[in-house]
Amino acid sequence: MTDLLEIRNVWKRFPMGGLLSRAHIDAVQDASFSLTADKPEIFTIIGESGSGKTTLARMILGLEQPSEGEILFKGQSVSRNMNREKRLEFMSQVQPVFQNPFEAFNPLKRIDRYLASTARQFLKTSDRAKIDAAMDDALQKVGLSLKEIAGRYPHELSGGQLQRCAIARALIPNPPLLIADEPVSMVDASLRMAIVNLLRSLRDDFGVSVIYITHDLATAYYISDRLIIMQKGRIVEMGDARVVLSDPEHPYSRLLKASVLSSEDAGQGKLATNPDMVAEANRLATMPSSRLQERPDGRLVRTYEGA
């Protein structure tokens, strides 16, 4: 089995306060996991703001340098200090999808320019016909066509269409890995499922692995194969998505699940949170020594010494 992506004991530390201050904050603590190249999957990173999920994604994209540990993509180390040639090579393999579709393209520029530039750079061609074919091909994968998009400005499209264009652009170099950072949190409800279903079809029909970063447990359950749940920089639970979310073990995972607003009991005004659960989850976040332990069903759960 070969690894597509391997995260080895990665830490990210940001200094806090002024130049002279020694204080720092651990945005990501000792994260390890790997994605195999043999079978495409949707790997979800769940976390609230401040959990370190975005920092982790930025490190995988080579936009941030890990303080400790190593990130390997197809056996090659990913670093912020890659030269342009190496970076272009890396970018043709790993592509991002960002959070806000309305910000994804420069509002003063036509959308197709980004697609064309991607095709020109990564397919190493300047043949107009080839570029158009690559653009149309990628747009077809997301349910659009070059005819609809050519010459359009961002404001002429809906959020859902823009996000699909962004995904199409990312797909042009045929990357084996897509990093999607909260791709649906700013898309309207009626268009959201189209994007989520699209991510699923990328895995099933085109063999693209997706790292799906979200705070929404419901969509995570809906599309992902495996997931990790992060709390304040630490992975607290990792395993098969359906297994973990149906019956979370770590107190923080349980709290997250309990906080999901359900439409099953609409109109009953069920909003109470158990304050003990919140307190317990917060207490564990500050415990110093802990490690991930394997459970019989294959999941890893963080356990704490003296807890």
């Binding site: 409800a189 009626s190 499922m193 989520v196 419901a218 809906y222 999901v260 439409s263």
Partner: peptide, 10 residues
């Protein structure tokens, strides 16, 4: 459509 498109755990 709106109420049916909400995914749910389980």
């Amino acid at each position: 459509h709106l109420v049916a498109s909400l995914p749910r755990i389980g």
